[in-house]
Design a protein around this nucleic acid. Structure first.
Lengths: 242, 242
DNA sequence: GAGTGGTCTAGACCACGAG
DNA sequence: TCGTGGTCTAGACCACTCA
């Protein structure tokens, strides 16, 4: 009977999940210490920690070293709508930080500029309550963004609007989406496990002259969001497929 | 000195990674048994297994119960291009299996049909060499797909073409992308760790009458692919944003 | 300093795969 | 049957947080 024998950690995780779902444990609350939980379920601490790791990987539990395990608030899901147009259902607090940086690494490739090119970095960090939620970085060549809209801590704002702010006349937007593990920086900033994948969206915006005017990098933790792209097919498109 | 002390599992994982990168261990090869590796690095088996878990989460190592740990072949990355149009760089072996199923669960919502509605399921499984690579399931109401193109094991085929085959006159394609953990079935089929996130693409195709004619579910393991969406902005779009 | 999680050990026993 | 990985135990010691 494979199903009933199923590992203890899963059984414990399931039990905690239902306790959370039924409201016996509420969002934001702290769980009993791992030692107490291990005693309650009569398992060893590593086993109990494995159970918590499952919940952590699902984004249900947030571990804080030295403090305890906390139930995350129900995930406000961001819906990122492609094409630079945002439809936000929720409102999150978004803070913006503007910095001057110089192109290096991937950025030079994405922006198609020489290494060292002056850039303006807009760092968006959205919060759901007191927990960090998602992260976006937008890079614009400095000659195109002469400190326009600088340091605006634009306050509460449409969540999906994070990336959805082309500031310049554009002709084409290309978005590349992949699932990957967070960088150490991202994991720390978002306070997520480094094993919880993020949905990474890279948006490259081109103006009417073909110049790349903006690169946006969005990291959306795990199951905390999705991206939606809608394509209207014209008659020519439909013919082209046949 | 936090960096140098950094956990043993990371040190071991780093060592194995470089051995793989430098070719000391080649793709497809089997690693020594976990007990032997543990002895070599003078750590306990759980610690060594933790190190392997890191590599497994990156898709570098594939564990096979009862056989051993194997180095994966370098990942052929799929580029899925949105809008139902595919641009494939690699060619993978794709096998198709056609089954008759009935709508239930999520499918009824996605297809907007009643539970129990007869559907045709096309199950695409692509292989890179002998390893499963990615997985797609396409569902079409049976009255729209009267066993058209049935059981075609279409052989070697553009990889990204997996999902890119609208069979009916369409007017709109909506694609939703998210990062999530694989279902147990997906993990087993793709032989990936259940902790390695997949990029999940759900494509809903609507015909000119507004009826949903096809739902496609693509699971792209971890860092093994990306999705690209390109939006051309017309002048009206640009005005609408201002 | 008390309490928490983070990491690791040195085993044990079970389940799977191949000969 | 034998070697493999899968799971678990019952501790130990370190690192972080907060009073």
């Amino acid at each position: 009977m494979n199903t009933s024998v199923a590992s203890r950690r899963h059984a414990i995780a399931d039990d905690l999940r239902t306790q959370i779902a039924t409201g016996h444990i509420k969002a934001g609350e702290r769980l009993p210490s791992e030692a107490q939980l291990a005693a309650r379920y009569t398992v060893s601490t590593p086993t109990l920690r494995n159970a918590l790791a499952l919940l952590q990987a699902e984004g249900v539990v947030e571990k804080v070293h030295g403090k305890g395990n906390f139930i995350r608030h129900p995930l406000p899901r961001i819906t990122y709508v492609g094409g630079g147009l945002a439809a936000s259902k929720t409102t999150l607090d978004v803070s913006v930080r503007t910095t001057k940086v110089r192109a290096r690494g991937h950025l030079t490739d994405l922006l198609q500029v020489a290494a060292g090119t002056p850039l303006t970095e807009f760092l968006y960090l959205s919060h759901a309550g007191k927990s960090p939620h998602s992260l976006a970085r937008i890079y614009v060549p400095r000659d195109l963004a002469p400190a326009a809209t600088p340091g605006e801590t634009s306050g509460p704002k449409g969540a999906a609007a994070l990336l959805a702010e082309p500031r310049l006349p554009l002709s084409e937007i290309q978005e590349s989406v992949c699932a990957r593990l967070p960088t150490p920086t991202e994991a720390a900033t978002l306070r997520i496990s480094s094993t919880l994948a993020v949905l990474a969206i890279t948006r490259v915006a081109t103006d009417t002259t073909g110049r790349i005017v903006e690169v946006a990098l969005l990291a959306l933790p795990g199951d905390r969001g999705e991206a939606v792209f809608t394509t209207q097919l014209s008659t020519e498109d439909r013919r082209a497929e046949g």
